[in-house]
Nucleic acid binder design. Structure first.
Lengths: 213, 213
DNA sequence: CGGTCTTTATAACGGCGCTATAGGGCGCTC
DNA sequence: GAGCGCCCTATAGCGCCGTTATAAAGACCG
């Protein structure tokens, strides 16, 4: 792979740097002034390039936003994985709920772009992020504490946390409203079983919780 | 009030008709081609008026959309009230959940406009619609079957149904996915109590469920 | 019947996403 | 090391957008 190191030449490196500059400018404008204020012309001014450069590297405005959203998903995933989960997988899911909301409130414009646009096919970054949630749910199933099939539980949990996040972002109530805790604990309670008595040595019950696909 | 009937003259009636024509054209374009395809020029063409007419009557494009959204909330509210609820208030809430999703899937563009835009103050139409949901929840509290304060239960239930609706609209899974039923029943189970045994004559328990404010 | 004021049309401004065209400079080949 | 080819970027402009200054037309009041 690294046979011809010089093949990553000056021009290619400069191209990559230009792409990064454009992406950074786009992300900054989105975070500061929202999606509606984002114009290619302003990205040009902030990044110090002209329009054809952007169109050469990204195709069109929607594709440029898609690349920003990809980066958001990566960052989102990283945020959710940060602070390794507590030992109890149910508690890990519960704290994931809170961190999910925190991310949405910290990056409302990005969150809306990530989840409110209809897309024909989810991007790989979005799938990876969804897979992170599914793994948390699967960890609960692995110790025999999931009441419903993994896929259904994952989707249901995601619905709940997305509902709280997007309505809070839309400004219908203040962050930290009691409804958030209510929804979180309702889903946890309904989707999972309490931990078995500690005198049982094997944490996983012999009857698994995964349904037949 | 109707002292001077002639004060509603020809001009006023024509103005009202013009407003209706413009609103209908806007709604039709939104439903058919989505928010991004909505342009004032196309509304003009479809409604048979010119731009200054629209700006005279509505102010700007955002205000025009606001008026359409107001009408959507009225229609939304009417849809949820249709088919009078079953006797059991818990079952009424459950069927309200399904009808809410049905409306969102039938009018995805309108639904997004109603609930995904950040607004400083909710419109009266939106408040009236929210109040309809709160009354359904309050009816459960009135028979002593609500586990949490009315306001919190209303907000939590709304979060849940909005989460299911908006993610389904965004295309993350098919309508009717099992997650919807799961979320619905989880919220119902956690927010409400089962009906008391029928041999007790008084349906409402003496200890009310409403919290303090 | 004349004046006023609401309502509408004409035409244009500035900004948008996007691109046809062309030129400059790096990298490859000999 | 010289020349060429191609990737990348800039100039300038197209068609569309939301919005509005100006002014004409006509319903209402006296």
């Amino acid at each position: 792979m690294a046979v011809r190191q010089s093949s990553v030449g000056l021009r290619e490196r400069e191209s990559e740097s230009t792409r990064r500059t454009i992406l950074d400018a786009t992300e900054a404008i989105l975070a500061a002034r929202g999606e509606e204020a984002l114009s290619i012309r302003e990205v040009c001014a902030r990044a110090g390039v002209t329009a054809p450069t952007i169109y050469h590297h990204f195709g069109d405005k929607a594709a440029l936003i898609d690349r920003v959203v990809d980066a958001c998903f990566v960052e989102f995933d990283r945020t959710l994985r940060a602070r390794p989960a507590p030992g109890d997988p149910v508690e890990a899911l519960r704290s994931g709920f809170d961190r999910y909301i925190d991310y949405g409130l910290a990056h409302p414009t990005h969150y809306r772009l990530m989840f409110s646009r209809r897309r024909a096919h989810p991007t790989p970054a979005a799938l990876a992020s969804y897979d992170g949630l599914r793994r948390r749910v699967a960890a609960i199933g692995a110790v025999g504490r999931l009441r419903v099939p993994i896929e259904e539980a994952t989707a249901a949990f995601w619905c709940a946390v997305h509902g709280v996040t997007s309505l809070t972002i839309a400004g219908f109530w203040q962050p930290g409203a009691p409804a958030a805790r209510l929804v979180r604990d309702a889903m946890i309670t309904q989707l999972t079983r309490p931990a078995p008595f500690p005198r049982r040595s094997r944490p996983a019950s012999p009857r698994g919780s995964e349904g037949s696909a």
